[in-house]
Amino acid sequence: MTDLGERVAILRDEILDVVAGGSEDAPAVAIFDAIVRTLSAGLDTALGLDLTLHDAVARRLAWGDSEQAILDDASLVFTRLARAAQRALRDPDEEMLVLEAAADVVCSTSRILGLAAVGRAGRDRAATLREELAQRRLREALDEQAHNLQRLQAEVATSDFE
């Protein structure tokens, strides 16, 4: 019997084409690949964080995809795959394995994105405080400039110095 992951991989074009308009850059690609990886590795491994999935999601966020866009893609991948698996797999046990793997991955993705959002909020708060510190420096520089401008204007006006 061929690897279940390989057989699900065959459904790639069908699922990703519908979801992502065929783009190889869509977040859905990373999620689908993670599901295939999970099936190939076997679900007997402990529930751990898939670092490749984590990195792939991190990259999507870094490139500017919103958390919601990735969540939407994950939902659609799950729904399409569940439907395709129901149609394509005859063995109920295999279909259940696919559903479990898909649920593992999309729930992991939700966790990654939720934590990414709180992490981002923390960084934004810190960045806001740093902006306020920078504003203070700029206000002090403005005070000093005002002092020097006043001085220089007076000096140039009188053309006299000690």
Binding site: S66, E67, Q68, L71, A74, S75, F78, T79, A82, L99, E100, A102, A103, V106, C107, S110, R111, L113, G114, A117, V118, R120, A121, D124, R125, A127, T128, E131
Partner: peptide, 26 residues
Amino acid sequence: TAAYQQLSSTIASLVVESVAPTAEAL
């Protein structure tokens, strides 16, 4: 599995929406 997917996704969406004001403040 569909139920758990919807729950986790919606919770993540809630978190995302809740932290939006910090981005605005920045």
